[in-house]
């Protein structure tokens, strides 16, 4: 089964493999969330709240639902 960004815990590092087609896929691409990019999880808000990731020098917060479209390893 594919692992999603939303499955990762705080402090984990990984690489984005694919971004599944979804209503906000353009927006994700625009924020540099693209296949091949390395990331680390800086923080996760409780109760499936937003996820705070770092890509390059960029700190981005996104919702759990959006993170579920991002396939990672």
């Amino acid at each position: 089964m594919e692992i999603k960004l939303s499955d990762f815990k705080k402090g984990m590092k990984g690489k984005i493999i694919d971004v599944l087609e979804n209503p906000v896929s353009t927006k994700l691409a625009e924020f540099g969330i693209l296949p091949g990019v390395a990331f680390s999880i800086l923080n996760r808000a409780p109760f499936k709240g937003p996820i705070f990731i770092q890509i390059d020098n960029n700190r981005i917060a996104l919702r759990f639902k959006e993170a579920a479209f991002i396939v990672v390893e």
Partner: peptide
């Protein structure tokens, strides 16, 4: 309306 999202730079 349409799907809501939150994507922001910190």
């Amino acid at each position: 309306t349409y799907k809501s999202y939150l994507l922001m730079e910190m």
